[in-house]
């Protein structure tokens, strides 16, 4: 569906995107994950034809975005980081204008708009000025705009940023609904969000692909090497010896030591059904080392 090869975008000396390649299959929901400034938006802008790459190619449905831009753009619905809304129009006027821009035939336009309005739940604000809507509603109008013309591919740049938790859940639900008959690329810097809606993740950092994986593989890798933090009073050496004897612990690293208070990282090789935390607790109490802090370290993308 989308084929990206060796994409480079240079800004002066800096390479915002540096050799990104990946493909998106039909019907897939691809998450685009990375810290701010990693090149997510730039890549999306190149795929949609807003920017041109310095080198590399983008093929959408077999159409090169530079060689056959009109054909390629017809397949794409794009929600940029900042929803491109005309604040002086009503929602309906704006969506009608978008239909004109996307050359949607007049016949059947009303039905399509009605369907989109109810899908993103903006029926009751359809006659209000876009400028008077709240941020959540504006975001939805932005998504509605991307859905016009029924494109096969949706590209959503941080669709939930700046929304309240309730709205975030609703937008995610909407995206999952859309995923049934669309190919979606979605960017985010929140891992849990990508986990909630995507099949596959591309992680980019400093303009390069750091990892491409399916969500299940990725979480397996993450949970397979979970870490615990333990802070206690006592001798590090004795504790290390006692804990290393326990099953399911693959490594212990010392973090900080402050006179007799120590902090250690325990790497756990998770085996099914076993929770090492109880055995660690008993081992510590048996040795007479008081536990000051004991928690699991979440694997975050950051």
């Amino acid at each position: 569906m989308i084929e990206i090869t060796n994409l480079v975008k240079r800004y002066g000396d800096k390479k915002a995107v540096n050799g990104i390649s990946f493909t998106v299959q039909k019907g897939e929901v691809l998450g685009f994950l990375g810290p701010n400034g990693a090149g997510k938006s730039t890549t999306m802008n190149i795929i949609t034809g807003y920017l041109s790459s310095t080198s590399g190619t983008v093929k959408v449905n077999g159409h090169d975005i530079l060689e056959e831009p009109e054909e390629a753009k017809k397949c794409i619905g794009y929600l940029p980081e900042l929803p491109p809304l005309y604040l002086d129009m009503t929602v309906l006027e704006y969506l009608n204008f978008m239909c004109d821009l996307k050359k949607v035939p007049r016949a059947g336009r009303k039905e399509m708009l009605a369907k989109i309005l109810s899908m993103v739940k903006i029926v009751d604000v359809a006659d209000r000025l876009v400028g008077n809507l709240s941020k959540g509603y504006k975001q939805r109008v932005g998504i509605a705009q991307a859905l016009i013309g029924d494109p096969e591919i949706l590209i959503l740049d941080e669709p939930t940023v700046g929304l309240d938790p309730n709205q975030i859940l609703e937008i995610r639900k909407l995206i999952r609904n859309l995923a049934k008959d669309h190919t979606i690329i979605l960017s985010s810097h929140i891992l849990s969000e990508v986990q909630a809606v995507c099949d596959r993740v591309v992680i980019i950092n400093h303009g390069k692909v750091a990892a491409i994986d399916t969500i299940t593989d990725l979480s397996k890798k993450l949970s397979g090497s979970s870490k615990l933090l333990l802070s206690f009073k006592g001798s590090v050496k004795d504790v290390k010896n006692a804990l290393q004897a326990l099953p399911g612990i693959s490594g212990i690293n010392e973090r900080v030591s402050d006179s007799d208070i120590h902090e250690i990282d325990i790497t756990v090789s998770n085996e099914k059904g076993s929770d090492v935390r109880t055995s660690i607790f008993y081992a510590m109490s048996k040795g007479g080392w008081p536990i000051l802090e004991f928690r699991s370290l979440d694997h975050t993308l950051e």
Binding site: Y50, K73, Y78, P80, L85, K102, K103
Partner: peptide, 13 residues
């Protein structure tokens, strides 16, 4: 200023 110019680049016109 409003960021709406992106519409002219990303739509088939």
């Amino acid at each position: 200023k409003r960021g709406t110019e992106i519409l002219f680049y990303t739509n088939p016109l």
